[in-house]
Simulated scan of single mutants.
Amino acid sequence: MNRVVHPIEQESYRRLRARLDTSHFPPLTRAVVERVVHSAADLEYASDLVMDEGELVAAHAALHAGAPVVTDVEMVAAGITRRETVCRLGEAKSGPGLTRSAHAVRLAYEEVGPGALWVIGCAPTALEELLALDVSPALVVGLPVGFVGAAESKAALRESGLPAVSNVSEKGGSAVAAAALNALLYHPVPPASEEIL
Rank of each mutant, 00 (worst) to 15 (best):
P68H: 13
A177C: 14
L63S: 01
H24V: 14
G90I: 06
A65M: 01
Y13R: 13
A18M: 13
T71N: 05
I196Q: 14
R30E: 03
L133W: 06
L185H: 02
A156N: 07
I8N: 06
L63G: 02
E195R: 15
E44L: 15
S169Q: 03
S136T: 07
T125R: 05
L143E: 07
Y186H: 09
A192S: 15
G97A: 03
P191C: 08
T29W: 04
E53R: 14
L16C: 08
A123E: 12
K154F: 08
S160P: 11
L16M: 07
G146P: 11
S47E: 09
A46C: 08
G54Y: 09
L130K: 11
A108I: 11
H103P: 00
V70A: 01
D21P: 08
P27C: 04
E11W: 12
G149H: 13
A138G: 11
R83T: 07
A175P: 14
V5F: 07
A104W: 02
V189A: 13
R35I: 00
P96W: 06
P26V: 10
N167S: 10
G146L: 12
L185N: 02
L98R: 15
P68D: 05
P27N: 04
S174Q: 14
L184C: 09
L130Y: 08
S153Q: 11
E111N: 05
H60G: 04
E9P: 01
L197G: 12
G79D: 06
A192G: 03
C122E: 03
V148R: 15
A116M: 09
A177R: 14
R14M: 01
S39D: 03
A183I: 08
A104V: 04
V148S: 10
D21Y: 09
V105M: 15
S101K: 02
E170C: 08
T125Q: 11
V32P: 06
E34C: 11
R83S: 06
A59G: 07
G173K: 01
P26M: 07
V33Q: 08
W118N: 04
L184M: 11
A132F: 03
A178F: 03
V176L: 03
G172A: 03
A62I: 09
A78I: 00
E128W: 06
E84L: 06
G115D: 08
S153K: 11
P26L: 10
P144G: 02
S94G: 11
A58W: 10
G115M: 10
A177L: 09
R158H: 05
S47K: 15
A164F: 09
N182E: 14
E159G: 03
V119K: 10
R35V: 00
G172W: 07
G113H: 10
V105E: 09
H38M: 00
A67D: 01
V57K: 13
L157M: 14
M51F: 13
V168G: 00
A156V: 02
E128A: 14
A138C: 14
G115L: 11
E152N: 12
V32D: 02
V176M: 04
G115W: 10
P144R: 02
G113P: 12
S166Q: 06
E84D: 15
V70W: 02
A62N: 12
A65F: 02
